[in-house]
Design a protein around this nucleic acid. Structure first.
Length: 486
DNA sequence: TAGGATTGCAA
DNA sequence: TATTGCAATCCTA
């Protein structure tokens, strides 16, 4: 048992789907008690808390402590405090995340500014070009104005609509770009603008005096058990080729002599599908080190010699299984016919029959009990699993089949983080964990510790699930920035 | 000023 | 007619 407890994590474990699990809403819902808000106590002038009069401050603070304890007592009655995921994963993870957040990630400000200058030049150039092609100035960042220019003023035929008007997303612009140069330019403008405002300016704004950013990892947001990251979000930094990929070169080690060390789980979700479904063909492919996309391609195309395009299709089909995409969408995404898409999916299930059984069993169980679980028994309730509406029912089924895989992957990396943190701490290593991106862990590596810790971290990560039918596999890289270490 | 809508970035 | 997220921006209420 951990030495401390967290009621917020307790509520999250009980039901990760419910949104309002904060102290204020729990007090209201469980005990019909309205907590004093911070705004009420600091008044409309937003005075500093130290200037609040003592009796008001005491009541406000006492209320927090009292209510937290009341909720703790309630959770004890419900035996939430005995939950294994809570005790063995979420609560121990708190200290790991705290240290990652405080440690921060070092950013090369000059490098970011350099990228920013390039982007600004491109944006200015494209802006002029777009105004010229449109014959007037307008706000290119406004979807509404872009729609008016393209589909009203220039009279281009609109293809897609949103709730409020014309859709002008990148797919639409892409489809118009061959015929209309302005569409291509707007698409590029958007791309560069996104990089500049979200990543270059966004990161610079979050940097402290030491050129570090300190993200917040939120443990109680996702329905599957994954973490999320905010201020800044370090889990959606671009990885594209070209200038977008350059953003990652600005992520650097703390000191010049250090390195970034990145570990990632290789194809973890497909591996977990094999492990959890017990499908012999999937398992033997992994056991024999056969490229899994090639293996699927062999099945769906019924031949040994596989082209690059065929492997790409097989990769999409493998990917599809995790998310439950329909043949329609698969055909759209791959630019193939719907009957081909359906055929590939059927072939997949014919050759990996236990995957099909596995999903059926999850859905059946969910229909009866209302929830699904990971192999570590993390639970998620699924709304709409017994809905009469086919669309809602199918959507619920996709959520139900996705969660055990995505959630187990989340469990595994969280356990790895705890074990690695303990290992580094126990041996007084100065190397530290600085980022988590769902299936990847990034460390600030102290050069002289390299030989000792890399094999140990690899061992920990690969052995979270010992004695299973297939092995987890991790890959690692070290470099002076995150782009090259990936 | 708050919050919905659109868009686009990641695993 | 694809799973899970977060942020910038626009724009209406």
């Amino acid at each position: 048992m951990a030495k401390f407890y967290d009621t917020l994590l307790g509520e999250y474990i009980k039901n990760p789907w419910q949104k309002k699990i904060g102290l204020d809403s729990l007090a209201l819902n469980c005990f019909n008690y309205k907590m004093i808000s911070y705004d009420e106590i600091t008044g409309k002038w937003k005075i500093n808390f130290k200037d609040v009069n003592l009796s008001d401050a005491s009541v406000y603070s006492g209320e927090d402590v009292y209510m937290t304890h009341k909720i703790y007592e309630k959770q004890k009655e419900e035996k939430i405090n005995e939950n294994k995921v809570l005790q063995e994963i979420e609560i121990p993870l708190l200290e790991v995340l705290k240290n990652m957040e405080i440690g921060g990630v070092k950013i090369n400000r000059d490098k970011l500014k350099e990228i920013g200058m390039l982007l600004e030049n491109e944006i200015a150039r494209l802006e002029k070009e777009i105004y010229h092609l449109a014959g007037e100035n307008f706000n290119i960042s406004s979807p509404k104005q872009v729609g008016e220019i393209l589909f009203v003023k220039l009279g281009i035929g609109a293809t897609k609509k949103t709730k409020t008007g014309f859709s002008v997303d990148s797919d639409v612009l892409e489809s118009l770009s061959h015929k209309y140069p302005i569409a291509e330019s707007i698409k590029n403008f958007r791309h560069y603008k996104k990089l500049l405002s979200t990543y270059v300016e966004g990161l610079i704004n979050e940097m402290d005096d030491e050129e570090k950013v300190h993200t917040s990892y939120n443990q109680t947001v996702t329905t599957t058990g994954r973490l999320s990251s905010t201020n800044p979000n370090l889990q959606n930094i671009p990885i594209w080729e070209g200038i977008a990929g350059e953003i990652r070169t600005a992520f650097i080690p703390y000191n010049e002599q250090d390195f970034l060390l990145a570990f990632d789980y290789s194809q973890v979700e497909v591996r977990l599908l094999a492990l959890m479904s017990w499908d012999e063909n999937l398992i033997s492919a992994f056991q024999n080190g056969i490229d899994i996309h090639y293996n699927t391609a062999k099945f769906i195309f019924g031949k040994e010699s596989i082209s690059k395009t065929e492997r790409k299709i097989a990769k999409a089909v493998n990917f599809w299984v995790i998310y439950g995409i329909s043949p329609f969408w698969l055909s759209e995404m791959l630019g193939i016919s719907r009957s081909d898409a359906k055929n590939y999916i059927d072939k997949f299930y014919e050759n990996y029959p236990k995957v099909s059984n596995f999903f059926d069993a999850i859905i059946k169980n969910c229909e009866e009990n209302g929830f699904v679980e990971t192999i570590f028994w993390r639970r998620r309730y699924i709304n709409g699993i017994n809905d009469k509406n086919r669309i809602i029912k199918q959507s619920a089924e996709r959520e139900a089949t996705n969660m055990p895989i995505q959630g187990t992957s989340a469990d595994i990396i969280k356990i790895a983080m705890i074990q690695i943190y303990d290992f580094l701490k126990k041996n007084n290593y100065k190397t530290s964990l600085i980022m988590q991106v769902h299936d990847e862990l990034v460390f600030n590596l102290i050069a002289e510790e390299k030989e000792k810790i890399i094999p140990e971290i690899q061992k920990i990560m690969e052995n979270i699930l010992p004695n299973k039918n297939i092995k987890l596999l991790v890959e690692w890289n070290i470099w002076k920035n995150w782009k090259e270490a990936k």
